[in-house]
Design a protein around this nucleic acid. Structure first.
Length: 599
RNA sequence: GGGGGUGUAGCUCAAUUGGUUAGAGCGCUGCCCUGUCACGGCAGAGGUUGCGGGUUCGAGUCCCGUCACUCCCGCCA
C-alpha cells in the first residue's frame, strides 16, 4: 500500500501518471453523478474524482457514503482539470486524480467537532479539543505548530553543535531542593519515606557538568513545577538549557543573539537585528513599570518627584516626604475611557496597596480631573511638556514607594494598551519583535513575612564583583550578574554568571539566605564539594522553549504548541490523568492516603 | 487559596421584564442533482438548557450550592 506521492505534490507535469495516494477524507462533494473527495494528508490536499462510469457500482456507492476523516487509499490517474475548474486556493488546484480503485482503510464515525473548517474549528471549546486532541492536531494550524516546534528544535541543536556545545541528558529523578517552586515528588519504593523530586530545572547538574570540564553544555530539558497554571505555564515544560565555562556576560549575550537569529530565520524567514538592546532593571521599571517591558507600546512612564516635592496636593507631596516618588503616564488617546475602565485601573492600583488612582482626562480643551484644582501653573506646565499632553489624552498617576509606583503604572500601561488596541488606536505589526536584555537585577529581595532575604533569581547567581563588599552591610544594593531575555513583553528566558567559589556560595547559603549549615550540606553538599576541586568560572541561561514556539506561532497560549497539554487544574482530558492507583501500588510505595473530607 | 468570564441540539450560537411547543446556521439521516471545491435543492431526526436544590401559578432566564473549562491575582528560587 505504498503511497507514490503525498497530497501536496501533484502538478500538471504529473498528468497521465498512475498514482497511489492515502489519507483522510477532508471533504466530499456529491453531485449525484460525479463525486469529488478532497483527500488530505500531512502535506496538503488533493482533489480526487469518482466517475460512476469508471468504477464498479459497489465501490462508487461506498465512496458516496464515506464520512469525513475516514482513511482511504486510492489509485488513479492524474489529469489536468477541465478548463475553468481550477482551484487557485490550493497548490494542487490545477490537477485532480481520477480514481480507479479505492480501499477504505478505516471508516470514521461522525466527528465530535469539525476539523475541516478553520473558521469553526478555531472556535471550538478547548475542553473538547483537548479531549479529542488527535482530531485537533489534524487541523492544519495545529500541524503547522508541531512542525515549527520540530524545526526550531532541530535548528537549535544544529546551531549549538556548531558552537561547540554537547547535548547532555540529566536525570529527571532528582531530589527535593529547599527553595523555589513546589515540586512533584516520586516515592521511593526501596526506602519508606524517601522521595525523588522531578527537577524544576537541571540547574545543579549543569553547573556540575562545568566542574566536569564539559565547558559547553546544552539540553532541550523537560522541567517540572507543581504550581498553578496560566496561559503561558504548564506543570511540565521544556527549556533550552545552556551552560558555558570561562565566559563573561557578553559572551552569552552574543551566543543567544546568534541562536535567536538562526531560529527566527528558520521559523519565519525573518532577519532580526543584533545585538539586542540592553536595559537595566532600574531603567526598565522607571520607563515601563515592569522588568519585562513591551517596548512596542510607547506610553513610557515619566518621573515627577521633583516637580511635586513641595506641592499643595498632599497625596503627592506626602508620598515624596515618606521617601516615595510620583510617576505619571500618558495613555495617548484614551480620554474617552469609560467609568468601568477607570474603575478597572483603580482596582489594579488598589491591588498594589494604593488608596486610589489619580487621573486627568483631556477633553474639549479642558483637563477634567478631581485633582487638577490642586496643581499650580508650574506643575501643570511641567506635566504638559514632559508628557506631551494633547487633546484626547488620559494622564494617570502613581505616588508611592519607587517600586510600587512603577509597578502600578506598569500594570495600567499594559491594560491601556489592550484597550487602545481594541479601539484600533494602537496597532502593533505582527512581524515586529522587540528583543532586549534586562540586566543589573538586585541579587536579593526581602521577605517581610519571613523576615529574611531570598534570592531574586536563584542562590547560585554571582554578585557583581564591585558589589560583593556590600553583601553583608547593605544586601539590598547588591546587583547580581543576572540577565533576562525579553521579547515583546514576554520573558523568554533568564540566566546568570554563577558563583564558582565554595566560600562565596557557602556565605550566600548560610549568612545571607539563613539556610542552616546542616541543611546546606544535606541539599548542596555535593555541589560545594565539587567547587573545591577546581570549578571553572561559568554561567548560563535557560530559554522557555514552549514560550519561544508560541511567540513564533503567534498564539497567546503555550497549549497550542504542546501536543498534549494539561488544563488549568493539571488534568489531561484525553487520558484522564492524574488518576487513582491500586491499594497494592500504594502499599509497595509505603503510602497511606488520607482522603480529604468534603463538607 | 481568591476574583472575573463561560456552560442551551454533535459543533458554533440565539431565545424580550420570568410566560405558549427552547430556535438558527453548520453537521447528521433520506431523496434529487455529471464539474464541484463553504457545491446546490427538498424533506426529516436530533434538547435532563452542566449537575443539585430553592423562590414562583410558571425558571434556560431569579437565588443558593456544586462541577468543568478559561483568564487574572497569589504562587512560579
Amino acid at each position: 500500500m505504498k503511497r507514490t506521492h503525498n497530497c501536496n505534490e501533484l502538478r500538471p507535469a504529473h498528468a497521465g501518471q498512475q498514482v497511489t495516494l492515502a489519507g483522510w477524507v477532508h471533504s466530499r462533494r456529491d453531485l449525484g453523478g460525479v463525486l469529488f473527495i478532497d483527500l488530505r494528508d500531512r502535506e496538503g490536499r488533493t482533489q480526487t474524482v469518482f466517475d460512476p462510469a469508471d468504477l464498479p457500482k459497489e465501490l462508487f456507492e461506498a465512496a458516496t457514503k464515506l464520512h469525513s476523516e475516514s482513511v482511504i487509499e486510492i489509485i488513479g490517474k492524474v489529469r489536468v482539470r477541465p478548463a475553468g475548474t481550477d482551484n487557485p486556493k490550493i497548490v494542487t488546484g490545477q490537477i485532480e486524480v481520477l480514481v480507479k480503485e479505492i480501499t477504505v482503510l478505516n471508516h470514521a464515525e461522525v466527528l465530535p467537532f469539525p476539523v475541516d473548517d478553520p473558521e469553526v474549528a478555531s472556535k471550538v471549546n478547548e475542553e473538547l479539543r483537548l479531549q479529542y486532541r488527535y482530531l485537533d492536531l489534524r487541523r492544519p494550524e495545529m500541524t503547522r505548530n508541531l512542525r515549527v516546534r520540530s524545526k526550531v528544535a532541530t535548528a537549535t541543536r544544529v546551531f549549538m553543535e556548531e558552537q561547540g556545545f554537547l547535548e547532555v541528558e540529566t536525570p529527571t529523578l532528582f531530589k527535593s531542593t529547599p527553595e523555589g517552586a513546589r515540586e512533584f515528588l516520586v516515592p521511593n519504593r526501596r526506602e519508606p519515606g524517601s522521595f525523588y523530586a522531578l527537577p524544576q530545572s537541571p540547574q545543579q547538574f549543569k553547573q556540575i557538568l562545568m566542574c566536569a570540564g564539559v565547558e559547553r553544555y546544552f539540553q532541550l530539558a523537560r522541567c517540572y513545577r507543581d504550581e498553578d497554571l496560566r496561559a503561558d505555564r504548564q506543570p511540565e515544560f521544556t527549556q533550552v538549557d545552556i551552560e558555558m565555562s570561562f565566559i563573561e556576560r557578553e559572551d552569552l549575550y552574543a551566543l543567544i543573539e546568534g541562536l535567536l537569529k538562526r531560529v527566527w530565520k528558520t521559523a519565519l524567514g525573518q532577519d532580526i537585528p543584533t545585538p539586542f538592546r540592553r536595559i537595566s532593571f532600574e531603567e526598565a521599571l522607571n520607563r515601563y513599570g515592569i522588568d519585562k517591558p513591551d517596548t512596542r507600546l510607547g506610553m513610557e512612564l515619566v518621573d515627577f518627584t521633583e516637580e511635586f516635592r513641595a506641592s499643595t496636593f498632599k497625596v503627592f507631596s506626602g508620598a515624596i516626604t515618606n521617601g516615595g516618588v510620583v510617576k505619571a503616564m500618558n495613555a495617548k488617546g484614551l480620554a474617552g475611557a469609560t467609568q468601568g475602565q477607570i474603575e478597572t485601573m483603580t482596582e489594579y492600583a488598589k491591588s498594589f496597596g494604593a488608596k486610589g488612582l489619580a487621573y486627568i482626562k483631556v477633553e474639549n480643551g479642558e483637563w477634567k480631573s478631581p485633582i487638577v484644582k490642586f496643581f499650580n501653573d508650574a506643575e501643570k506646565a511641567a506635566l504638559k511638556s514632559k508628557l506631551a499632553i494633547e487633546e484626547g489624552d488620559l494622564i494617570l498617576f502613581a505616588a508611592d514607594q519607587w517600586l510600587n509606583a512603577c509597578e502600578i503604572l506598569g500594570k495600567i500601561r499594559l491594560y491601556c494598551a489592550e484597550v487602545l488596541k481594541a479601539q484600533g488606536k494602537l496597532t502593533v505589526p505582527a512581524d515586529r519583535f522587540d528583543f532586549l536584555w534586562v540586566v543589573d537585577f538586585p541579587l536579593l529581595s526581602f521577605d517581610k513575612e519571613m523576615n529574611r532575604w531570598y534570592s531574586s533569581h536563584h542562590p547560585f547567581t554571582a554578585p557583581m564583583a564591585e558589589d560583593v563588599p556590600l553583601l553583608k552591610s547593605d544586601p539590598k544594593k547588591v546587583r547580581g550578574q543576572h540577565y533576562d531575555i525579553v521579547v515583546n513583553g514576554v520573558e523568554l528566558g533568564g540566566g546568570s554568571i554563577r558563583i564558582h567559589r565554595p566560600d562565596v556560595q557557602k556565605t550566600i547559603f548560610e549568612e545571607i539566605l539563613q539556610i542552616s549549615p546542616e541543611e546546606t550540606t544535606l541539599r548542596f553538599g555535593y555541589m560545594l564539594e565539587a567547587f573545591k576541586y577546581g570549578a571553572p568560572p561559568h554561567g548560563g541561561i535557560a530559554l522557555g522553549f514552549d514560550r519561544l514556539i508560541a511567540i513564533l506561532c503567534a498564539t497567546p497560549s503555550i497549549r497550542d504548541v504542546i501536543a498534549f497539554p494539561k488544563t488549568a487544574k493539571g488534568v489531561c482530558l484525553m487520558t484522564n490523568s492524574p488518576a487513582s492507583v491500586s491499594p497494592r501500588q500504594l502499599r509497595d510505595l509505603h503510602i497511606e492516603v488520607k482522603t480529604a473530607k468534603k463538607e
